[in-house]
Simulated assay, not measured.
Amino acid sequence: MVLRGAAAMAGGVVTMMAMAIFGGLWMPLEMFPQWMQDLGRALPTYWISSLGEWSLQGAELPVTGLVVIGAWTLVLGALCMVSMSRAVGLQRR
């Protein structure tokens, strides 16, 4: 919603790759320094992975993960609404 055309595709790929790396999907978070582990636990990709492990292994439900995923959903949804309203407003002029 913020970028246009080919820049939107490149931005999406870069964002997804960064979230996968820092969220611990490619390598375990324990391999990273402490500040990167803290960053990884703040990303939804880490918690989506944890929810997958929870569903397969039957461990305790990661409630913190649901809160983090919900917060990201609300913030990014609001960003999309603002970006969309600006884009539509620019087209009307």
Rank of each mutant, 00 (worst) to 15 (best):
M84W: 15
W35P: 09
F32D: 03
Q34T: 14
V14Y: 10
R93D: 10
G11N: 02
A78T: 07
M31A: 14
T73I: 08
L76S: 13
G12P: 08
S83V: 09
L79N: 02
W54I: 07
M81E: 08
L61T: 11
V13F: 08
L3D: 04
M84S: 13
L43H: 05
L90Y: 12
G23M: 01
Q34G: 01
W54A: 04
G23Q: 00
F32A: 02
G11D: 02
M9D: 02
Q37G: 09
M31S: 11
G24Q: 03
V75G: 02
Q57F: 13
E60G: 00
T73H: 09
S85C: 08
A10K: 09
L74W: 09
R4L: 13
M9T: 15
L3I: 05
G52F: 06
G70Y: 03
V82A: 14
M1P: 14
D38P: 00
S83G: 11
G12Y: 10
V88R: 12
Y46C: 04
C80L: 11
S50N: 14
V2D: 12
T15Y: 14
Q91I: 05
L51V: 06
M36E: 06
M17F: 15
V68G: 00
G70P: 04
S55F: 15
Q34K: 15
M81A: 10
T73V: 07
S83W: 13
I21M: 05
I48R: 01
G89E: 12
E30Y: 10
V13M: 06
G65Q: 00
V67D: 09
V13P: 03
F22Q: 03
M1E: 08
R41D: 04
A42Y: 09
G23T: 04
A7K: 12
M84D: 10
L25F: 00
A20G: 08
E53Q: 13
L29N: 05
W54Q: 04
T45E: 03
S49N: 15
F32M: 02
V88S: 08
V75Y: 04
A71Y: 07
L79E: 06
I21A: 05
V63F: 09
T15K: 02
W35N: 09
L39A: 06
W54P: 01
M27E: 10
V88D: 07
V67G: 04
A6W: 15
A20T: 02
G65L: 04
W35I: 05
M27L: 15
T64C: 02
L90W: 12
M19W: 15
V63G: 01
V82Y: 13
L3M: 08
Q91W: 12
P44R: 03
M17I: 12
Q91E: 13
P33N: 13
I48Q: 00
A42Q: 14
L3H: 07
E53P: 01
I69G: 01
S83Y: 12
R4K: 15
L39I: 04
T73Y: 10
L29E: 06
G70A: 04
L74R: 06
A87N: 08
L76A: 07
G11S: 05
M81I: 08
L76D: 02
M1T: 06
L66N: 07
G23S: 08
P44F: 04
M81L: 10
W72V: 07
G70M: 01
A42R: 10
L61R: 15
A20R: 01
W47Y: 05
G52T: 09
R4A: 11
M27G: 00
T45R: 06
Q57V: 06
A42K: 09
Q57R: 14
W72D: 03
